[in-house]
Design a protein around this nucleic acid. Structure first.
Lengths: 232, 232
DNA sequence: ATTAAATATATTGTTGACAATATTGATTAA
DNA sequence: TTAATCAATATTGTCAACAATATATTTAAT
């Protein structure tokens, strides 16, 4: 249980110092959890009332949500909650594949021995969690994100980390939530994670990148069929 | 001259319908051109006065600039123009390498024959421009960006296109401007562009990606030495 | 003289009112 | 009945004043 803590909702840990940021977090959760339905219209005065603030900071919150693609905005015409579709998710997964591939490469180059050790321990925990709570897909999924987040941090590339953690993972969480949990795949994923970690430990940049990309494009294949069944 | 037009300053072409967006464009230019110095403090009331608007829309403009990393912002403490350093540019180029590599792969898969033809014509123009205006580094550089922009568009990946065009290219332009033009390298770059275009025409996704990544990491090696001479 | 506390100033965060634009519904002409 | 025009309404954009927070300055104590 030591080492880097889980980063589920890192953003909400220390109360934001500003109304706009707190409201941003609230609305973000509400969108990801589906309490604000996909495609629904956002009316500033209504939301301001609902969250008990004035339109100023609410506007800032909306802009931030637009930034991470949870809301679509058109000047003078208002904003709507995003509508996830297969095409957009494909974009997300392709971007993720290339970015995380690079992150894995950089991690293999830059990760300290202590970090590598800690990463290995994390995977042991996951293995334990899988055999115990066989079926608790939620924890497995957040465990999965933990692994990927560690790689992103270890890459020491701020830009990539920010895009993955601030944007892409949010959209994937939302998609997962609204598609009623993807099938577990926990065992397969864990094995792949172990291989990636091993490549990093060997400082094999090339292999780490390839395995990470294969891991993600494999995940996409699964998600894709689910989405196609759902929407088409 | 037909086909996709040059996209230098696309954003400014049709006057934005809102004060905030117009001001965003103005400040963006001023930062990229160095009229607002790196690291300088941004005081909202001062800038509002300077650009002749109130603090409301100015604030929105600042948030947008924060979004594309031209401004750094700390709650309650204000904002400053970003300070480019070698480390940040390395992050940018690494992200760019992976994203554009993926874009080239997707382009090889999705580009229409007409687009491929048009891309080839673009490179002919560049060849002509190089032999004529041998030394006019500015046009060569914008030509370079044109090429990369076309690949990004052809990838049909909105997320990648947006990040490249809206964020990474801006920072690279700024870096280039403030480093007093990088050495031309025009001939080498053109040859590499031709190889990439050829791979795309052959629908060789693998090769297109590899060549694009090599092209960009090569560019970074050059930029890196320049920056290190400059800052260290 | 140096540090700490307290005060004053500057700057950002928030609010409610007003202006500009878009959307909706009603009215009229074909 | 349908299409087009106009008025009415709703919604976003902009502004200026006020509140909360941080920064700078002064004062007091050691």
């Amino acid at each position: 249980m030591t080492g880097t803590p889980s980063i589920v909702n890192t953003e909400e840990l220390h109360e934001s110092p500003t109304l706009a940021l707190r409201t941003f977090d609230s609305i973000k959760s509400d969108i990801i959890n589906g309490e604000l339905a996909q495609g629904s219209k956002i009316v500033e005065s209504d939301l301001a009332l609902k969250y008990g603030i004035s339109r100023g900071p609410l506007r800032e919150a909306i802009h931030r949500l637009e930034r991470i693609k949870l809301i679509v905005r058109i000047p003078h015409a208002g904003s709507r909650v995003i509508t996830l579709d297969t095409r957009m998710m494909e974009d997300i997964y392709n971007a993720r594949e290339s970015l995380e591939g690079m992150a894995a490469r950089l991690a293999a180059r830059l990760m300290s021995d202590a970090e590598i050790e800690s990463l290995s321990k994390l995977l042991d925990q996951h293995a334990a969690a899988i055999s115990e709570t066989d079926g608790k897909a939620y924890f497995q999924r957040e465990g999965d994100i933990d692994f990927h987040y560690r790689i992103a941090v270890a890459s020491q590339n701020q830009w990539i980390l920010e895009k993955l953690n601030g944007e892409l993972y949010q959209l994937i969480r939302m998609c997962r939530h609204q598609s009623g949990q993807f099938p577990s795949r926990a065992q397969t994923a864990l094995e792949q994670h172990r291989q990636i970690a091993a490549a990093i430990a060997r400082r094999d940049e090339e292999l780490a990148e390839i395995l990470m990309r294969r891991h993600i494009s494999g995940a996409w294949e699964i998600v894709k069929t689910i989405l196609e069944d759902q929407y088409d």
